[in-house]
Design a protein around this nucleic acid. Structure first.
Lengths: 302, 302
DNA sequence: CGATCTTACGGGATTCGTAAACATA
DNA sequence: TATGTTTACGAATCCCGTAAGATCG
């Protein structure tokens, strides 16, 4: 009893009649037959519990209560349209927001091209990109601060869903004048005895390499945080290094050469991490699909 | 296409489901079967053009867009309820406003009791009472500043509707020790030769009296604006006067006596004036009906 | 396998449009 | 009488509730 139904069609008809002061014209404007329109107005009057119009066959005029309700009706219709437009713009990818976290290697080398394509298609979607190490990437998703993440570790939290994204092979990087630069094919064993420039032990790349390369007993001479520093060291002739394919953009320099490292089993798997319970927003889903469609063609882990 | 329909039932169902996160319970709360409720939600999602819930059989959760729309839906429902309550309170006479214009005689003597009864029944209706001479009363109605008026003249404007309200007889007022005070029956001819206290010529009462009493050639000694002044003059023994029944409350005093004046045809007709085109507001209609029901029982003009 | 949402479907209410009746200036 | 609203009514649509089916945990 305290919850009468009210539809936007009724309100639109009401406003149309208030503006036209004529059932026939208002009905035409509303794409309804005049009797159907009349019934619609009557249903509204029943719903609100008061006569809204004084009608004679010659004149149709708002009652005092109708005039008062007209203001409410106009405002309600305006707000309804606002709300619908808001949702509609999100659905049409004209509004929205996507938050992504990605490993620096992906964020710097591969992601920008994907984002450029996305922005070209959906210029009004806000993008929130975080480049962070794998743990931080996953944490952002878990905390709801990122819609999805590209990280080198599987998430452990049960509320997260981890799927393979791509698998990164490793490359040798050395100076053009280094003895290894001439080898057609470089294997793990070939690294023995050469000075080696390493990343810090906290890096996931380093952990992969330690596991595979250490048996080769390379000389580890440095522990650096940034790959660009590593590139500088290698260019200065201080040693060689081994890095994943996706980071090779750091080493594009005339003095340096890169060689695929022939080491079966040595690879860095990268995963895409999302929340398990929540679906992606429309905007996030769109970027997610683009990300998956343009994933690096190195094959997939597992 | 740009005008999808949206009903308050859909919004209520949506909010209920968002709060319950469970179709079965939300359906029960909405007094609907679960499949009907489900269809209602689906119809809303179709109308707004986006999925609002992620549902598995185990979990029902708002999508990002749904969460955004929830705020709009809550606000819309709140505003709808406000609008309906506003109209409902007017219809139930718990809110509203009535503006009445009445001759001072009615406004002072008879109207207050009617207003007291009205206010007792509808204490929250605003009352706007104007006491004014007949022309000003009619003008207030014509200008829309009064819902209806009680005046001693018929309105001339075509947009006004004039109906008989009551007919006022006249009374002689004199001091208890005046010779006329002992007459069982007083007629116009009996006034001859007695000092007479008159209102100003602009008063409608005076105009009635002049037309009827002048033939009796009374001595007109004063021309006053206020009946209370007339009462003082009569009490001081400066003359007698003749006034309509409705004004007798001015002369209720131990020293004064009033006698019905036997003068067929001498009467003051009072009319109720409304706009012809507009109906009265619910509140005005209620007061109008009370006014008509309690009209002075002197008979009606015409 | 149990709880829960969706699909299927028959019955009933609602709403539509056409046509006739009715009312006012 | 002419214009414009309401009533009448058959048809199409929509909506509801029951029952069966599908799905996730």
């Amino acid at each position: 009893m305290s919850e009468p139904n009210l539809s936007s069609r009724q309100l639109r008809a009401f406003v149309a009649l208030a503006e036209a002061s004529n059932f026939t014209r208002a009905a035409a404007r509303s794409h309804l037959s005049q009797p159907a329109f009349s019934a619609l107005i009557r249903s509204l009057e029943t719903a609100v519990g008061a006569r809204l119009f004084d009608r004679t066959t010659r004149r149709v005029e708002l009652t005092v209560e109708g005039a008062r309700f007209l203001e409410s009706a106009r405002r309600l219709l305006h707000d309804v349209e606002d709300a619908l437009r808001d949702v509609g713009e999100h659905a049409a990818l004209r509004r929205g927001r996507v938050a992504v976290a990605a490993l620096p290697a992906l964020a710097a080398g591969w992601l920008p091209g994907v984002l450029a394509a996305f922005r070209a298609r959906h210029p009004d979607i806000e993008l929130d990109i975080a480049d962070a190490l794998s743990e931080a990437c996953v944490e952002r998703v878990r905390a709801g601060r990122a819609d999805f993440a590209l990280a080198a570790i599987r998430a452990s939290a049960p509320e997260l869903r981890t799927e393979p994204f791509c698998s990164d092979r490793f490359h040798l990087v050395c100076r053009r004048d280094h003895p290894l630069a001439d080898r057609r094919r470089v294997g793990l064993a070939d690294l023995g005895g050469h000075a080696f420039v390493s990343l810090a032990r906290t890096s996931s790349v380093r952990q992969h390499i330690d596991a595979a390369v250490l048996p080769a007993k390379v000389q580890s001479v440095m522990e650096l945080e940034q790959l660009s520093t590593v590139a500088g060291m290698v260019r200065a002739g201080l040693g060689v290094t081994v890095v994943p394919t996706l980071t090779l953009f750091h080493f594009e320099h005339p003095d340096l050469v890169t060689r695929p490292l022939h080491a079966p089993g040595l690879r860095r798997d990268i995963f895409v991490v999302r929340r398990r319970d929540r679906s992606l927003s429309i905007a996030a889903q769109a970027l997610f699909e683009l990300v998956m469609a343009r994933r690096p063609a190195r094959g997939r882990p597992r």
